[in-house]
Design a protein around this nucleic acid. Structure first.
Lengths: 125, 125
DNA sequence: AAGCATATTCTACAAATATAGAATATATTT
DNA sequence: AAATATATTCTATATTTGTAGAATATGCTT
């Protein structure tokens, strides 16, 4: 199941805070802040969808993500690759290097990552 | 303005076909196909949003995208980078190389692209 | 103990989205 | 010319999403 925009926003804060009470999430929102009940509703929805868990502390709950940000995104990006880039990761990579703002430092860093990755793959053969 | 899921699906077919009559789009859909009027409604919406144009041929219209797929995605990906990767493209790239299925050929190809890009940047200084 | 801060649940409603029937029009085929 | 295929517009409705008030409960502070 997928998250809506408003639910994603909640997840963003939870990923950032790692764990949080309703109040902590409310604090993260810029003005004009939503009503606390709105956040409560959204929390209930992401719990129902299996993205969030909580531990009871007195009458309150401390919420935390059950899904890692990287896992969520890996699914999202792989869907984009499947639906828009003909299921070709390198086609997406090509698009990515051309269409996003990458400065020289970014590029050198990416080169380093890719080299590392190539080495690992060759070794594991 | 942003596209909804159903509108994105229409755009996907238009990007693939480059230009198409309503019928051609309907043909692309797998079973169970939506009603032709559903597609007509969605076409009207993407036209209103400025993503699609058309030329009149007799009583019918031949639709075509006004926005390039790469432009649309470059916006999407840059938003993801901003909202989820701390505005760091290389952080996203790192995530990308780790979390998507890239085989050795993909990696070599990406390395080639990045090297090329680095050369160009250095030259243009 | 009284009042305050915090949270939760239930309920509700407005807006956005997805879908398509009915009516109508125009080309094309027979 | 009649029948058929195609498309368009208008209208409508069900579902999903975003938002929050009212009622209620619990723990903390004075």
């Amino acid at each position: 199941m997928d998250l809506t925009k408003a639910e994603e926003q909640i997840m963003r804060y939870l990923w950032k805070l790692e764990k949080a009470y309703l109040k902590n999430i409310l604090d993260e929102f810029p003005y004009p802040k939503p009503a606390a009940t709105t956040i409560a509703t959204l929390l209930k929805r992401v719990i129902d969808k299996g993205f969030v868990g909580f531990s009871q502390h007195g009458s309150n709950r401390e919420y935390f993500p059950l899904i890692k940000k990287t896992d969520y995104f890996s699914k999202q990006v792989n869907l984009i690759i499947r639906d828009y880039f003909n299921n070709s990761a390198s086609q997406f990579a090509s698009f990515f290097t051309n269409e996003t703002d990458l400065n020289l430092t970014d590029l050198e860093e990416i080169k380093r990552l890719v080299d590392q990755k190539i080495k690992n793959q060759k070794k594991s053969k």
